[in-house]
Simulated scan of single mutants.
Amino acid sequence: MNDQKGTSTILPMMLSVKGYTVVIVGGGKIATRRILPLLEVEVNVIVISPEVTADIKTWHGQQRLHWKAKCFEPIDIKNAAIVIAATNDPKVNLQVYEASEKHQLINLADRPNLSNFYVPATFRRGKLILSVSTSGASPGLARQIKQQLSEIYDENYESYVEFLDQCRQIVKSTSLNQQTRNNILKELLKTRYRHMDEREREEAFKQLLEKEGGKQNE
């Protein structure tokens, strides 16, 4: 038995953030990049900065986030679950860190060693989410790898993953034994299904299910 403890302090995970309040301190290019993925999920985004980019102003006007045109004060992050310090002033970023509490997730754009979470380079294809992180060592490399992956896992994967999800639910509802269910789902992972259009996929799956004697439970 191996009793040796892991040496990494980073635990990759997907976090359900519905209803969370996320405070971004800063309104420049880095803050804008940090905000982009937040707009894709159901969180309450608050930006604290005297000045912001045109994109942030637009999102504020669209009510996709709330911008407070002011300098940072500790009270600004009191009710935040997630805090991101992304100003171009290291002193302000440090003030944000010092004002944070232990239960809060905090990320400093310029001091990854003080952060308790990192923002990975991420892209989505519907339900497929791919993230790359170098644990703060090289954000540029993470973005480069993300770009390479986005070319491999193109837009076609969005409908393909949705198809797989629907098929999985149908297969689970049948009276087939577990091994047969697994075989069907494994078959659907073959490349030819990914290159089919929606109608072809549905027909191919229907034929596969009938071949295996699958019948949905009522």
Rank of each mutant, 00 (worst) to 15 (best):
M1I: 15
Q4T: 14
K5A: 13
G6L: 09
T7A: 08
S8H: 02
T9W: 11
I10W: 15
L15V: 09
Y20S: 11
T21K: 14
V22A: 01
V23Q: 03
I24V: 13
K29Y: 00
R33C: 02
R34A: 05
R34L: 03
L38C: 09
E40L: 05
E40T: 11
V41T: 05
E42I: 03
P50H: 01
T53S: 11
A54L: 10
I56Y: 06
I56M: 06
H60K: 05
R64K: 11
L65T: 01
C71T: 15
F72V: 05
P74A: 09
P74H: 04
I75Q: 14
D76N: 03
N79E: 15
V83L: 01
A85S: 01
N88Q: 06
N88F: 00
K91L: 12
N93S: 06
N93T: 08
Q95S: 15
A99E: 04
S100M: 07
S100A: 14
H103I: 14
Q104N: 03
N107K: 07
N107W: 02
N107S: 01
N107G: 03
D110R: 02
D110A: 12
R111I: 12
R111K: 13
R111Q: 14
N113I: 15
L114S: 11
N116T: 01
Y118M: 14
A121W: 04
T122E: 10
G126N: 06
K127E: 12
L128K: 06
L130Y: 03
L130H: 08
S131L: 06
V132M: 00
S133Y: 09
T134E: 07
T134V: 07
G140C: 10
L141V: 05
A142S: 11
S150V: 03
D154E: 09
Y157V: 00
E158G: 09
Y160T: 12
V161D: 07
V161T: 09
L164D: 02
Q166W: 02
V171A: 07
K172W: 08
K172T: 04
K172S: 08
L176V: 07
L176H: 02
Q179E: 15
T180S: 10
N183T: 12
L185D: 06
L185A: 01
K186I: 08
E187R: 15
L189C: 02
L189Q: 09
M196S: 02
M196C: 01
D197L: 04
D197S: 03
R199A: 15
E200T: 04
E202V: 06
E202N: 11
A204V: 00
K206D: 10
K206G: 08
K206W: 14
Q207W: 05
L208F: 01
E210S: 14
K211Y: 13
K211D: 13
Q216N: 10
